[in-house]
Design a protein around this nucleic acid. Structure first.
Length: 465
RNA sequence: GGUGCCAUCGCCAAGCGGUAAGGCCGCAGCCUGCAAAGCUGCUAUCCCCGGUUCAAAUCCGGGUGGCACCUCCA
């Protein structure tokens, strides 16, 4: 396994800190709104990573948190009059619903910030007692970045200009210092009691605390891999790494991975630009598997320019896999072809090289079709192909559907009846050698976005796009 | 202002010093009543200019053009 480390900016051979075991922590969502395409991409990137690690025979401890205390949630409480948990429970469920729809496997552990206050309290207390943190007059606790000589080593953003845009707090010792704990305002009802007073956590502490709580680590590192979106490198991960290093005395993660951004029509997708794209909206138009295939078809580190034209182009590639599957359904599953399996896995083990992986799959599809053309009733061949498809499903998370249902996605019962009636009429016309009528019916179906194909087993149809 | 990333066929996209994968689209052929599907074949010298090297899309320098982070954001 090779991984591109975004701190060293180079591809490295992956060597776990404990043989046979991988601890992976990924920054999850703040649950105050529905998941957008960017959340999907991040979740999918690390879902692929977890799948590949598992297929490589590692025991994988995959942690992805839910940030359920935060200023944005508090703002939403004020807007809606709802309680913290009313909001966070609602959006947590909706997040999981969406991720399930695009085939993201559930992490091993999904800690919530509100359930990890004890761990945060421990870490902040440690930092205060080691003199890495200080409390100001209003009760806020700040991390003293000047005490960590390695501060800035993660993101390499150390110039003073960097912090010129960070909010200036008068009592902060250094402009780069960040809040570990925010003291409770009188009118805020989201507060937790700790040794250093009532308040709520700062943005960065939860990840460090959760990692400390849920992993054992070694003398050198807490976890193997830490992941998240590219925007989190600074300041979030820089701060996380720094506070963990100071609290524990060793590095937070051995490898850092960051997924690229999703753009919509060439522009960054963001709240402020007003071009956010919720996954739920995309799921109304396209099946989760089609979105998964599209969103994972481009390497996780590249920027992703989401648009419908490319999505439909990518769907055609998935269609080919399902057409192959249509040819072999019901034949039972055999062992996957060893060479295929090995090639596919090693492509993915090369920093998740999905492009090469997909080309290996395309090659397998072409070879399988060719073999089925020459020996259509070879049962062992069909079983092996089914085995190949099953492996793809496990490793990459697509291709597991019933192939006939796949091509009927978005077709309701009424339309289905109509299609089948038309096909019957056409078959009758063909029998009578009335090809003009047969072709006319086919055109009619094509106008309905239905593609038909005459096979040895009769006429089958597909819904296009 | 500071710090990075990227630029490969009409479109999407691999490539990580050894002589350009794959997909979509297009063209030709086989198959088909005709199609569709499937199969076969065909289609780029890698933004520009220098340099290093026996050898560069790949390394270095300089341009040009995109994008991102430094502020809540995956």
């Amino acid at each position: 396994m090779y991984i591109y480390d975004s701190v060293q900016k180079t591809k490295l051979k992956f060597e776990p800190i404990q043989t046979g075991k991988v601890t992976l922590y990924v920054c999850g969502p703040t649950v105050y709104d529905d998941a957008h395409l960017g959340h999907a991409r991040s979740a999918l990137s690390f879902d692929l990573l977890a799948r590949v690690l598992k297929a490589s025979n590692y025991e994988v401890i995959f942690i992805r948190n839910f940030t359920d205390v935060d200023d944005k949630i508090i703002a939403k409480m004020q807007q809606t009059g709802k309680s913290l948990h009313e909001i966070t429970d609602f959006y947590t469920d909706r997040y999981l619903e969406d991720m399930d729809a695009i085939g993201v496997l559930r992490p091993t552990i999904s800690p919530k910030a509100t359930e990890s206050i004890d761990a945060m309290e421990d870490m902040i207390s440690t930092l205060i007692s080691k003199d890495y943190a200080y409390q100001i007059s209003n009760g806020d606790v700040y991390f003293d970045t000047s005490k960590d000589e390695l501060y800035g080593s993660l993101s390499k953003k150390v110039s003073d200009d960097t912090v010129s845009r960070i909010e200036h707090i008068f009592e902060k010792k250094n402009s780069k210092d960040f809040a570990l704990w925010k003291a409770c305002d009188e009118n805020e009802n989201v507060c937790f009691d700790t040794k250093f007073g009532r308040g709520r956590p700062g943005w960065h502490i939860e990840c460090s605390a959760m990692i400390a709580k849920h992993t054992n680590g070694t003398d050198e590192y807490s976890i193997d891999i830490h992941g998240g979106g590219a925007d989190l490198l600074f300041p979030h991960h820089e701060n996380e790494a720094s506070q963990s290093r100071c609290a524990t005395g060793h590095a937070l993660a051995k490898y850092w991975m960051h997924n690229g951004f999703v753009q919509v029509d060439g522009e960054k997708m963001s709240k402020s630009l007003g071009n956010s794209f919720f996954l739920k909206d995309a799921l109304k138009a396209y099946d989760g598997e089609i979105l998964r295939f599209y969103l994972t078809s481009i390497h996780y580190r590249n920027d992703f320019n989401f648009n419908e034209i490319d999505l439909l182009q990518s769907k055609k590639r998935l269609d080919k896999l399902y057409r192959l599957k249509k040819r072999i359904v019901g034949s039972g599953i055999g062992a996957a072809n060893f060479e295929f399996k090995t090639a596919l896995l090693s492509a993915m083990q090369d920093d998740l090289n999905i492009s090469v992986a997909l080309s290996i799959i395309d090659d397998m599809i072409a070879k399988s079709n060719e073999a089925l053309d020459s020996t259509p009733s070879d049962k062992n061949l069909k079983k092996e192909i089914m085995g190949n498809l099953e492996f793809i499903g496990i490793l990459l998370g697509f291709g597991a559907k019933d192939p006939f249902l796949y091509f009927q996605l978005g077709v309701d019962e009424g339309l289905k009846q109509k299609i089948e009636t038309l096909i019957k009429q056409r078959s009758e016309a063909k029998k009578q050698k009335d090809f003009a009528l047969a072709d006319q019916i086919r055109d009619q179906l094509n106008d309905m976005d239905i593609n038909i194909m005459d096979t040895a087993n009769g006429t089958v149809w597909e819904k296009l796009s």
